[in-house]
Design a protein around this nucleic acid. Structure first.
Length: 588
DNA sequence: GCCGTTTTCGGCCCGACTGTTTTCAGTCG
């Protein structure tokens, strides 16, 4: 029996190994694509029927066979056979810039290189330069690459990447040759972490922009620099790509450079069916001249779109697709049918449920948090804290809890045109019992139930534990369902599908947590929740007044999950919200 | 390996940059 992750990983690795084996490129892509598509699912793959699997684009008889094999034996013959010929450890070599599958395989076949260590020894011994296609320069670059292969594999948190991007854009705008500059890539798509920064510029003289960019003080090393494109390694230990195009290609380049790769591949296939071809310079008519250069095409008046993204999508018979949706998870089909969601926006949010004051582990007072919430332009706020068991965060005793509730009531009386409520992030104890007695929970305006300890429980235990909490009628919202810390801690094991269904049944909301290193739910789970009709709440989990700005992160997850205004309980006014909280159990 | 409003066979996204080459393969996004 295999987990979704194991199936997804194995298919991806088979694809990579096949690539080293010089297999049919389209066969390789089929594995890549199957792996990618399956990673968008929340249901257990091994529980799905053959017909359900067949209905997934990119999943055919071959992949179904592999899934069946993995369900029965935990692995596939294909993988085991490939592994004998090409050691899996060779995949590590692909993390080095400039090393791809072909060269990695050559290193293995000719020099018996099986690991990064082997590679280092061979490069230091000057053995690489003798290989066909290698030279002194490449050998040198590989040695340099070895030193930051580790850092190159790391992804930056979305929030940190945004801050860094702002600084870079400000610098680039100082270049006189630049007309316009804008972020693209996974940052623009709002992915929870960002592997590299992508920046798009319009200019007439690309070379001038490239020269200016590569000399910025933030740049540690230039990895590549041409007429229209540069790749640098920043001092912040992240790669940054700059692409320069003329203004009439801005939309096409932005579309292309925003990705995702998977979205673009499907979009281009769609274009081909219509008799067009897309590249970063525009949408062009094909008509039997696919070998024409871009300049020839422009000259012959074959460009039919390029200036704006809207124009690009429209030329392909599609509505403009918000960047957050561009992951090849059904957005192109939805755009075709004009059924794209009208995504929720930051301005639709009227308040926050989850944050902390200096009564527990926050840094600001209750009063300061309320004031800051008002400054956010919200209509109401629930101020929360940790419950008693979370000793490390000075969790509140029941007595202290009731005192603070009285304080909140006073504050509420004092504020005009703004409502203040008491929420609490209450621990779900190891056995699923809540960290306060029912009569204490009853006094809290909104109870957020979260797992904080004993995170290593097996899936069944964890599922039962969280289910027990959800079945407690006092629990209004389930807090960060995953428990992950990006780059630091894996999510805990839980049957998410079962939890979503129970939330639907009990009309319990799920939290989208805006802390940059948490960001749970996962976007795909939140999307599934929406489709099941589970209520959702965006929160900041702020531990200071400044962190209320993390609402932007939470809304980004919501948008990646296809959520609309109506899907979030934060978009209600205070009165409707209190009605909802009071009556939600009766609405079954 | 997958797929079909031209197809159950014959297609399958597209271009920039580097280093090794003397016309291009490999890598990358």
């Amino acid at each position: 029996m295999s987990s979704n992750q194991e199936i997804i990983d194995q298919l991806r690795i088979i694809g990579q190994l096949l690539e080293m084996d010089k297999a049919n490129p389209f066969r390789i892509r089929a594995y890549e694509r199957a792996s990618q598509t399956l990673s968008g699912l929340t249901q257990k793959i091994t529980d799905m029927t053959e017909d359900e699997l067949k209905a997934i684009p990119g999943i055919g008889p071959g992949m179904i066979g592999h899934i069946k094999e993995m369900k029965a034996t935990g692995t596939t013959k294909e993988f085991e056979t490939l592994k004998k010929r090409i050691p899996e450890s060779l995949l590590k070599l692909l993390e080095i810039p400039g090393l791809g599958p072909k060269r990695a395989k050559l290193l293995h076949d000719e020099l018996n290189v099986k690991s990064l260590d082997d590679l280092k020894k061979a490069a230091e011994g000057g053995k690489l330069r003798a290989l066909p296609g290698f030279g002194e320069k490449l050998e040198e670059n590989i040695l340099k690459g070895l030193s930051f292969a580790q850092a190159a594999g790391k992804r930056m948190l979305l929030w940190d990447a945004k801050m860094l991007m702002e600084t870079l854009l400000k610098e680039i705008k100082r270049c006189p040759a630049v007309i316009e500059t804008t972020p693209a890539g996974s940052l623009r798509r709002g992915k929870e972490t960002v592997g590299d920064l992508d920046i798009l510029c319009t200019a007439r003289d690309g070379a001038k922009v490239i020269e200016f960019f590569t000399k910025l003080p933030q740049v540690e090393k230039i990895m590549a620099a041409g007429e229209t494109k540069a790749t640098v390694w920043l001092k912040s230990q992240i790669q940054c790509d700059l692409r320069v195009v003329p203004p009439e290609s801005f939309g096409a380049a932005l579309q292309y450079f925003t990705g995702s790769k998977e979205h673009n591949v499907v979009l281009r296939e769609h274009a081909l069916k219509l008799g067009y071809t897309i590249n970063e310079y525009g949408v062009f008519e094909v008509k039997g001249d696919r070998l024409l250069t871009i300049d020839d095409r422009v000259e012959k008046g074959k460009r039919i779109a390029g200036k704006t993204e809207e124009e690009i999508y429209k030329a392909l018979g599609l509505a403009w697709i918000p960047p957050e949706l561009r992951e090849n998870r059904g957005e192109i089909e939805a755009a075709k049918a004009n059924k794209l969601p009208k995504l929720v926006e930051l301005k639709d949010v009227k308040g926050d449920f989850h944050n902390h004051t200096n009564l527990t582990d926050g840094v600001n007072t209750l009063e300061q948090m309320v004031e800051a919430a008002q400054a956010m332009g919200w209509e109401w706020v629930f101020i929360g804290d940790h419950s008693q068991s979370l000793k490390i965060a000075k969790g509140l005793s029941p007595q202290k809890l009731h005192e603070t509730i009285a304080q909140v009531r006073e504050l509420n009386k004092k504020s005009k045109d703004f409502r203040v409520f008491r929420s609490m992030e209450v621990d779900i104890l190891k056995d699923g019992k809540m960290d306060y007695e029912d009569q204490d929970l009853d006094a809290i305006d909104a109870v957020i139930a979260s797992v904080h300890g004993s995170m290593k429980q097996p899936e069944e235990e964890m599922t039962a534990r969280v289910s027990r909490a959800i079945n407690n009628p006092h629990v209004d919202i389930v807090g960060h369902l995953s428990g992950r810390l990006l780059n630091r801690r894996e999510p805990y094991q839980i049957n998410t599908e079962a939890i979503l269904e129970l939330c639907k049944k009990t009309n319990t909301a799920l939290e989208l947590n805006g802390q940059p290193e948490r960001q749970d739910l996962f976007d795909i789970h939140a999307h599934r929740a929406k489709n099941l009709g589970v209520p959702l709440a965006v929160t900041t989990d702020a531990h200071s007044i400044h962190q209320l700005a993390y609402m932007e992160v939470a809304v980004t997850i919501a948008r990646r999950a296809w959520l609309e205004k109506k899907d979030l309980i934060n978009t209600m006014n205070a009165e409707d919200l209190m009605d909802w909280l009071k009556n939600r159990k009766g609405s079954e």
